[in-house]
Simulated scan of single mutants.
Amino acid sequence: MTTPLTVTRIAHASQLITLGDLRVLTDPWFTQNATYYPGEPVVRTVETLGPLNALVISHEHYDHCDLDALVAGGFDLSTPLFGPGTVTALAATKGFTNLHTIEAWETARVGDLTVTATPGKHGVHEVTFVIAAHGRTVFFGGDSLHIPELDQIPERFDHIDLAILPVNGLCIRPAGLRQVVMDAEQAADLTAVLKPTLAVPHHYAFHSGFLGDRMITKGDRDPRHYTDALGRIAPEINTRIVLPGVEVTVP
């Protein structure tokens, strides 16, 4: 019997993934500030998350690593937290006690859950993840660029059931429009390599506010550009744009 696998988009790159009886939260973000706006409803509060088996964080940027909100919301700081050294060092200063530092191609296990850090590239140090338990496997792309090392994932892992990828091609205006996140076409190319049962885009609704969008960041906020690209590049792969709060079951 296949273990149930579901994903619920909370907002941005914050996803609640269940693999059977295990519940994993990725890249938490529950608040906003003057230049970071989710651009979509944040459908859960920290207080309504419920018990989690793990917290997986790709890098320390505020919109992916909102540790202050977790602490303020009474989150259980003994929950296993997986991330690169930049994340676990920060988490230790916030009082988190069950820290698992993993860098690219390193693996850590807690009970039936296995988390492998896979390569990533962003404006700061980042890893992506392969999350596995009970025969189900999820790739979580954080907000990385598509780098060649990610194409090695199919050589190292069995079939990917669910791939969650960023798609907004975020560029930094003061840095000459330097791109720091994969765009729709690049995400579709990576999806074609991974060959998941289901692919879900994320990291597209975010914006920097009226002035910030014109002075700081530039990004594509339409996830249909990704699904259209995937339809051209790998039409055999199922994809779905998921609204916040909707639970999706992966076949």
Rank of each mutant, 00 (worst) to 15 (best):
M1T: 11
L5I: 10
T8Q: 14
I17P: 03
R23E: 11
R23C: 03
T26D: 12
W29G: 00
W29L: 09
Y36R: 13
Y37K: 10
P38V: 02
G39A: 15
E40S: 14
E40D: 09
V42H: 12
T45Y: 14
V56I: 07
V56S: 10
G73P: 05
G74R: 13
G74I: 10
F75M: 03
P80M: 06
K94Q: 11
G95C: 07
T97N: 06
T97S: 08
T97K: 10
L99M: 06
H100W: 04
H100T: 02
I102K: 03
V110K: 03
P119H: 11
K121P: 04
H125N: 14
V130I: 15
I147N: 03
L150M: 07
I153A: 04
L165V: 12
C171I: 06
A175C: 15
V180Y: 02
V181A: 05
A188F: 03
L190T: 07
T191P: 14
T191S: 12
V200W: 01
H207T: 07
H207G: 05
D213H: 12
R214P: 10
R214M: 10
T217I: 12
G219H: 01
P223W: 00
I233M: 01
P235H: 11
G245P: 03
E247G: 15
V248S: 02
